[in-house]
């Protein structure tokens, strides 16, 4: 029962982190105090890691930025496997995401920079020079259609008629 409520709270916050606690409490049919407790517990357990806005930076005037996804092949280190290499990479602040992958390469690294030059420099100077890195393939993102479940430029107009039976 409580687990079900926790899941509901998480789903509501994942959809809209700014939903106020009174509304959440009413929606999941708990008191505000109980809801507060659930959220604090989830934060403490790191089930909730943070709250952020999904920004469509292309709408922001004078914003310049590029995103690249880099496929990285590495040699895993004895004892620590891929984790150590991954850490060497994900500590760089310009790295936004790192995943261990099945298939043709090992790590998928997503990185954001101001210019393509900046990213190229990161790849050639920081990434490929790491001992365990065997090769890299860099793909630049040309356009973002959907990110984290949110469709950019979605048409959200209500297409229903005003009053119906």
């Amino acid at each position: 029962m409580l687990e079900q409520k926790e899941r509901e709270v998480l789903q509501l916050l994942e959809e809209n982190a700014r939903l106020d606690i009174e509304t959440i409490a009413k929606m999941v049919d708990l008191s505000v105090a109980e809801t507060q407790q659930i959220i604090e517990k989830l934060e403490k357990e790191n089930a909730i890691l943070g709250y952020s806005a999904i920004v469509n930076w292309s709408k922001v005037l004078e914003y310049e930025g590029v995103t690249a996804m880099i496929d990285v092949k590495v040699t895993p280190a004895r004892g620590v496997g891929f984790d150590k290499v991954a850490e060497r990479i994900y500590r760089f602040p310009e790295v936004k995401a790192v995943y261990l992958m099945s298939g043709a390469y090992d790590l998928s690294v997503s990185i954001e920079g101001k210019t393509m030059m900046e990213i190229s420099r990161f790849v050639s100077e920081k990434l490929s020079t790491l001992d365990m890195v065997l090769s890299t393939t860099t793909h630049f993102v040309l356009k973002k259609y959907k990110h984290d479940g949110i469709i950019f430029n979605d048409d959200e107009d209500d297409k229903r008629i005003m009053v119906s039976p």
């Binding site: 209500d158 229903r160 008629i161 005003m162 009053v163 119906s164 039976p165």
Partner: peptide
């Protein structure tokens, strides 16, 4: 004629209306 029709006509002519009168999923 259905009483719903009249409210449809009224509401459709106004701006900035929030409709809770819709009998279908959003």
């Amino acid at each position: 004629p259905s009483g719903i029709r009249r409210f449809f006509d009224l509401a459709s002519k106004m701006d900035n209306v929030i409709s809770l009168g819709v009998g279908e999923p959003d």
